[in-house]
Design a protein around this nucleic acid. Structure first.
Lengths: 211, 211
DNA sequence: CCCGCATGTTACCAGCGGTAACGGCAGTCT
DNA sequence: AGACTGCCGTTACCGCTGGTAACATGCGGG
């Protein structure tokens, strides 16, 4: 049947276009223009728009690939058969290793679309770097809810923790990637300590008010 | 002397322009155009550029005001004379109350510039929503380093924690503001529990692998 | 009186995302 | 064979953006 043949070649074309877009986004940053992407793919703008609708569509498709890949890696880490602290540390390390290995991808994923329709009021706040982080947070939240017994209302607490931990990981990783103040292992250790509650176990300084 | 007089009136003009920009950014979101801002101020584009250089300059000036205000509020919270847990909870609550009260401001602060010069390579990663979060993280890091005795290398750990905690607060707040899954007090309690290390104190579920 | 100077304007530029309208080139139906 | 139907691709354009050059205007001081 030629319909399937057409569809297959269309899908293949789509993948080629995505790979071209990937190359140019990785080279030029997230502000790459549709013209540039089309040129890299050896074609012109309108066919990009026929395939992806608009720039948001292209970027969404592009982001999904990388997001899925990262999510799979994190799944593996979070399912590792070690004790809890080791598992937390391993998950953090997996994420940090990923963003360390491909900072351009990471940077792209954090503000992929900038779509943000007018939205009438102020209730769509978290649209900026959200898609990946939201997915990660939600996913981690369900993992925590599944595995840890938090009592009544625990599911909500688990979601809060999921988003909070992901945000912690993200912010610390972002800062670390920019300044490189220490090794990855040290960063992982410090963050794991923080999640272990070391902040509330250490002593105040002798002088000054306590924290 | 007329130089001071000129300067004063120029500064005053600048403040008027900033207030106009504030109004239109709060009304139209961060994608407000320079034309719109100029129109709101009752003038035209070029004088905006004479005052602020480029859009990034205007947005930076605009962001600084709100950032400073928020920082002052957080300073107060972090200096409160209560025990450590209460102080952590109070600081979180101050931040969340601020973003709850003025989500438009918050939204603007999170991606103010989008400047991101070409940068040649990939080492300026965290430019997207960074300025405010970076400042908060650095500030909190020094506060922690000042007040808590973390032993040798503790300053670095404190900075990691500062950025991590700020990121946790940010991500959880962003998600919460979008979905409103619970009251602010509940959110604060859950996050404080997380920082207290409750994640490592609770039991595994009876079934399934532990976390 | 004219000069400098700041303030404001109009008119323009390059680039962006996005689209309409047209040109070939396959395969299909009669 | 020849007309018809879709699809891939193009050129040329639109409205809008951030940003700038060049020109007008009102002001105080030699």
């Amino acid at each position: 049947m030629e319909t399937t043949q057409h569809q297959r070649s269309a899908d293949q074309r789509r993948r080629e276009l995505l790979e071209a877009a990937d190359r140019v986004v990785l080279r030029d940053g997230p502000h790459a223009s549709m013209n540039a992407i089309a040129a890299e793919a050896g074609i012109t703008k309108p066919i990009l728009y026929r395939h992806f609708g608009d720039k948001g569509g292209l970027y969404r498709a592009l982001a999904k690939r990388h997001t899925d890949a990262l999510l799979r890696a994190l799944q593996v880490a979070v399912d590792a058969d070690v004790d809890r602290r080791e598992r937390v540390a391993g998950t953090l390390d997996t994420y940090l290793a990923a963003i360390e290995a491909r900072p351009q991808v990471y940077r792209f994923l954090m503000h992929p679309a900038e779509d943000s329709q007018p939205s009438e009021a102020g209730f769509d706040v978290g649209r900026h770097s959200a898609p990946l982080l939201r997915r990660l947070g939600e996913e981690l939240g369900t993992v925590i809810a599944d595995r840890v017994d938090l009592g009544p209302g625990g599911d909500l607490v688990a979601r809060v923790w999921g988003h909070g931990i992901v945000g912690m990981m993200h912010a610390a990783g972002d800062w670390w990637l920019g300044e490189r103040p220490c090794s990855r292992a040290e960063l992982v250790a410090s963050l794991t300590d923080l999640l272990c509650g070391r902040l509330f176990q250490v002593q105040d300084r002798a002088d000054g008010p306590g924290f």
